[in-house]
Amino acid sequence: MNRLFKLVVYIIVLTIIAIQFAETLSLFTGLITVSAGTVIGFASMNTLGNLIAGIIIIASKPFKVGDRIYFLNRIADVIDIKLIYTLLEDIDGVRISIPNQKLIKEEIQNFGSHKILRREIFITPGFDVDPRLVEKALIEAAEKFDNILQYPEPRVDVYEFLDNAVKYRLIVFINNSKIIPRFDYQLKKAVYYTCEDYKIDIRTPELIEMNEARFDQEPFNPRKSA
């Protein structure tokens, strides 16, 4: 009798567990189905949006393959335009795939086939020099040149913190590759003399090759020598 009672109890317990497991499994399966459907739905919407954006780009032609554009603070050449994404290559040679939907939402400046070039100058004054003074001096040096583009505008940033100095970078843009050697030399001279005027000591071990150059003592006028 006891054995029969225990057997009945076991059967009831197993039945309850089976029912609970079945309900849990069904709920779990349902959640997976809903989640998967949601993910697929969003993915389909993004794909469709990029596809429509690609058709708009191809039809309206805001830029074409070979153009150089300014997009999200980055200069890049258009390598290929596909229906879903556009392939760009920045001036450092890095290739980027941008979804077309993102491209048509952002402001783009198209330089066409006129290839603009970025030039950089580094200086490394000590930590005691006010960063605002450094920025003012470097921007003032850049403003002496007529062949520096105003858009993208010249800018200064802190490139690196060294052991005994701060490495600043002046970034400017030009659109004539033929003048690069002379332009780089003139820009270094302008930075050198402007830093002298502001009494910014740039004599550090990390200084660019400008520190080794010999400059004429006569006043420098980049516009006259351009």
Rank of each mutant, 00 (worst) to 15 (best):
D146K: 05
A141F: 05
Y159G: 13
E120V: 15
Q109D: 06
I121W: 07
P125N: 05
V129F: 08
E140F: 04
Q109Y: 14
Y151V: 09
I148V: 14
I139A: 00
V134M: 06
K115A: 10
L138S: 04
A141Q: 05
L149T: 12
I139N: 02
L133G: 00
Q150P: 02
R132Q: 13
V158D: 02
L149C: 03
E143P: 06
E153F: 10
A141K: 00
I121D: 02
Q150Y: 11
P125T: 15
F127I: 03
D146G: 12
I123P: 04
L133T: 06
S113W: 07
E143L: 12
Y151C: 01
V134I: 11
R119F: 12
K144L: 10
D130G: 05
F145H: 13
N110F: 11
R119P: 07
N147T: 15
R155C: 14
V134Y: 09
Y151I: 12
E120I: 14
E120H: 04
E153G: 03
H114E: 09
R132N: 10
R118S: 08
F127K: 10
E135Q: 10
R119V: 15
E135N: 04
V156L: 09
V158C: 02
I123D: 14
F127S: 02
R132P: 03
T124A: 15
A142V: 00
P152R: 03
R132K: 14
S113D: 11
E143K: 02
I121C: 10
A142M: 00
F111T: 06
I139E: 02
V158E: 14
R118I: 11
V158G: 08
E153P: 02
V134R: 03
F145P: 01
V158T: 08
F111H: 07
R118E: 07
F111M: 02
D128Y: 14
P154G: 08
I148K: 04
A141S: 10
G112K: 00
P125Y: 01
A141V: 10
I116H: 05
P152M: 11
G126C: 13
A137M: 05
H114L: 11
I123Q: 09
